[in-house]
Design a protein around this nucleic acid. Structure first.
Lengths: 140, 140
DNA sequence: GTTTATGCAAATTCTTTGCAATACT
DNA sequence: AGTATTGCAAAGAATTTGCATAAAC
């Protein structure tokens, strides 16, 4: 089972309407979502402020992670349940931003090859944003 | 020669005090700078609004590029003169964010190894943000 | 002299905070 | 019942726009 209620339970969060609906959006869409995207769907059913707090809670609990985008606006996506938790975060994120459909998706299966850094640099996390055309748009 | 006036001339921009001073900050510092960093140096000598417009102009002309950071705040850094212009932008940026000194620097000499993408994906640009401890901070 | 950039004021948008009412467990 | 979450109002930041003045070419 992997429904949204389970996710909340697993992270010891109360099951509120706003959290359930927000989570179900993340589960359904397979691309990164901005605060503004959520607002368009959830406001005025829920308050804008509640959305800010919901995202903040999800981030803290390791349910979602911030996706680096080329725009200024931060986006968010579900963490892979195998890798992320409150305690430990899997931080080799690869994201793909399509210039056609403007969607950003996580490429969880891509592994960033080892990169040699200059003397003295210690790497802990890698965030790779690849921009181009996604498989869906390149077929057209 | 590579002084700031030349850079402005090359991009057909008028030599104004604000542009000259802003550019010289980018040339001097070797790490990514946020709008806020610039404000602390340049306001109230120049208006905050002028800074916004200066950065926007520099971005459009390909003098600076946006640096992806883990925070929300956008940062900017000088484009390497060999690679970027108004017409064409070199986009294999590797940036390193140090968790100790919080500075983000460009690692221009690092090459991102070839990455195999899933069927149908066409990659055009790569932006890699590495987080860790920089050479300066790891010595201490 | 003509064009472009600046400064100021003000409008918009984005994000956070405090607190009483409500919902969850 | 006790605690956490929400909605509303409002404060505080960040960013954009319009327009008259000033600077650059």
């Amino acid at each position: 089972m992997n429904n949204v209620a389970d996710i909340l339970t697993k992270h010891q969060l109360r099951h509120t309407d706003c959290r359930l609906e927000t989570l179900s959006i993340f589960v359904t869409k397979n691309f990164a979502i901005s605060h503004n995207d959520l607002e368009e769907i959830l406001v005025p059913t829920f308050d804008r402020v509640t959305l800010y707090r919901t995202l903040k809670t999800f981030l803290e609990k390791g349910i979602i992670h911030k996706v680096l985008d080329d725009e200024g606006t931060p986006k968010y996506a579900l963490c892979s349940p195998h890798f992320c938790s409150t305690q430990e975060h899997h931080h080799n994120h690869v994201h793909f931003k399509c210039s056609e459909c403007a969607k950003t998706q996580c490429l969880d299966n891509i592994i960033i090859p080892p990169i040699t850094l200059p003397q003295g640099f210690l790497a802990k996390e890698f965030n790779l944003l690849i921009q181009g055309v996604c498989s869906n748009c390149s077929q057209k």
